[in-house]
Amino acid sequence: MHYSKKNIADLDSITRLKIINSVTGIKPANLIGTIDKDGNTNLALFSSLVHLGSNPALLGFISRPQTEEVGHTLENIKENGLYTINHIHPEFIEQAHYTSAKFDKNISEFARCGFTEAYENGFIAPFVKESYLKMGMRFKEAIAIPLNGTMLIIGEIHHLLLPETGMNDGDIDLEQTKSVGISGLNSYYEVKKIAKYPYVRVNEVPEF
């Protein structure tokens, strides 16, 4: 099967969304929690989280173009500069999926989709209590992407919360935390650890 640029452009929008959202493989599935200046909370599903650096500890995600219906997450982040990133687990995949509906700003996805707001260490943005691995983030920079009107939102980790069982020999074990991945718009995958290799040095690369 071969799709040319024209073939892709000629696809109906839903088919194109499903295919192009899947070609990168399994992506991290996260819920981003925010709150506005009036105390209204928001919870939204994102699959674009990416590591940008470890010192400082920076993560980025892609925010779609803002409209009346879409963009409450970024709007809230701009108001107070704080947000949370929460891993999704098998027990609540369905609830997490439905946070992607275009709810009115005055409707909290926490309440509507059955999640519990949790506030940790004086952090004003809400964490998802049901999540085992979560991060409190401080907004650092927004970089516009003119090609499609999206923005790369960059934040720094100020709090990292995870269970003791989530650490294995100095690494976070995503199989143990039961974190799930997503492909396309609506397909979810469990994570299984299949191998671990040492930090790569040129003189230690084996012959293949």
Rank of each mutant, 00 (worst) to 15 (best):
Gly60Ile: 08
Gly60Met: 08
Gly60Asn: 10
Phe61Cys: 01
Ile62Lys: 00
Ile62Trp: 12
Ile62Gln: 03
Ser63Arg: 00
Ser63Met: 04
Arg64Thr: 15
Pro65Tyr: 12
Gln66Ser: 12
Gln66Thr: 14
Thr67Gln: 12
Thr67Asn: 12
Glu68Leu: 11
Glu68Ser: 12
Glu68Arg: 10
Glu69Gly: 00
Glu69Val: 04
Glu69Ile: 06
Val70Gln: 10
Gly71Leu: 08
Gly71Ile: 13
His72Ile: 01
His72Thr: 06
His72Phe: 11
His72Pro: 06
Thr73Gln: 05
Thr73Met: 11
Leu74Cys: 02
Glu75Gly: 03
Glu75Ala: 06
Glu75Phe: 07
Glu75Thr: 07
Asn76Ser: 02
Asn76Thr: 03
Ile77Glu: 10
Ile77Ala: 04
Lys78Pro: 01
Lys78Arg: 09
Glu79Ile: 03
Glu79Arg: 02
Asn80Gln: 05
Asn80Ala: 02
Asn80Asp: 05
Gly81Pro: 05
Leu82Lys: 12
Leu82Glu: 10
Thr84Val: 05
Thr84Gln: 03
Ile85Glu: 00
Ile85Gly: 02
Asn86Leu: 02
His87Asn: 06
Ile88His: 09
Ile88Ala: 06
Ile88Ser: 11
Glu91Cys: 00
Glu91Asp: 13
Phe92Glu: 05
Phe92Ala: 07
Ile93Gln: 04
Gln95His: 14
Gln95Gly: 04
Ala96Trp: 13
Ala96Met: 03
Ala96Tyr: 10
His97Leu: 01
Tyr98Asn: 05
Thr99Phe: 07
Ser100Trp: 14
Ala101Gln: 13
Lys102Tyr: 15
Lys102Cys: 06
Lys102Trp: 09
Lys102Gly: 03
Phe103Pro: 05
Asp104Tyr: 08
Asp104Pro: 15
Lys105Val: 10
Lys105Arg: 13
Lys105Gln: 10
Asn106Met: 07
Asn106Pro: 04
Ile107Asn: 06
Ser108Gly: 07
Glu109Val: 03
Phe110Asn: 11
Phe110Glu: 13
Ala111Leu: 06
Ala111Thr: 14
Ala111Gln: 15
Ala111Tyr: 14
Ala111Lys: 15
Arg112Trp: 02
Arg112Ile: 00
Arg112Asp: 03
Arg112Asn: 07
Cys113Tyr: 11
Cys113Pro: 04
Cys113Thr: 03
Phe115Arg: 15
Phe115Glu: 11
Phe115Trp: 13
Thr116Asp: 15
Thr116Met: 00
Glu117Thr: 04
Glu117Ala: 05
Ala118Gln: 15
Asn121Gln: 11
Asn121Leu: 14
Gly122His: 02
Gly122Cys: 12
Gly122Pro: 12
Gly122Arg: 00
Gly122Ser: 06
Ile124Leu: 13
Ala125Glu: 12
Ala125Tyr: 08
Ala125Gln: 09
Pro126Trp: 10
Lys129Cys: 01
Lys129Leu: 12
Lys129Trp: 09
Glu130Gly: 08
Glu130Lys: 08
Ser131Gly: 08
Ser131His: 12
Tyr132Val: 00
Tyr132Asn: 11
Leu133Asp: 00
Leu133Ser: 08
Leu133Cys: 04
Lys134Leu: 01
Lys134His: 06
Lys134Ile: 02
Met135Cys: 06
Met135Ile: 04
Gly136Gln: 02
Met137Leu: 13
Arg138Phe: 07
Arg138Ser: 09
Phe139Gly: 00
Phe139Met: 09
Phe139Arg: 02
Lys140Arg: 14
Glu141Gly: 00
Ala142Ile: 15
Ala142Tyr: 08
Ala142Leu: 12
Ala142Arg: 03
Ile143Phe: 15
Ile143Leu: 15
Ala144Cys: 05
Pro146Ile: 01
Pro146His: 05
